[in-house]
Amino acid sequence: MNEIIEHIKKRFPVYEIGEGPNGVILMSVEASRLVPMLTSLKTNHGYSILVILSTVDWLEDCKFQLTYIVNNPEEKRDLGIRVFIQREDAEMESIHTLWEHAATFQREIKEMFGINFPGSPGVDDQFLLEGWDNKPPMRRDFDTKKYAEETFFPRPGRETNDPAAYMKQKLYPDE
């Protein structure tokens, strides 16, 4: 394993190498170097399966984190590659040329986070939301509760109570 990391380290500017859950090696790389790195992993090191492409919204840092997890079926090993991109006008290079099914992940991310993947097939098509005209709903500055209350006729009588305060009020109403 270390050989591969050493090998990658030589060729690509990776940083923040660490171990995630279930022994996944996680590393970060510059956005511009991602596609060459994935190509190299796929062709030279046997990481032939794209397991998932997921997104995290780091609102405070004004960044999106894209995580590409690739799998080596022969060595039964996962490798996670993180990429940080700007939150404003977020755009990322598409990897549908490496894995066709990445286009579906990218289409979903485009809809849920508003990250554009130019050239990815069908990236502008509706995926889960039909006729959505608001902010992409998975962005953290989108207030889902407020939106749901405004849109979906909440049924009255659904107040939540802080358990400690509620029990105190119930048991010792005088205090």
């Binding site: 889960l128 939301l129 709903p137 989108f142 889902t144 509760k145 939106y147 749901a148 209350e149 979906f152 006729f153 909440p154 049924r155 009588g157 659904r158």
Partner: peptide
């Protein structure tokens, strides 16, 4: 379907079916 259940604050799930 009654009041949204555990999806009461979801952006995409209705709260009250009788509407």
């Amino acid at each position: 379907t009654i009041n949204g259940g555990m999806y009461f604050d979801s952006y995409n799930t209705i709260n009250r079916l009788d509407h």
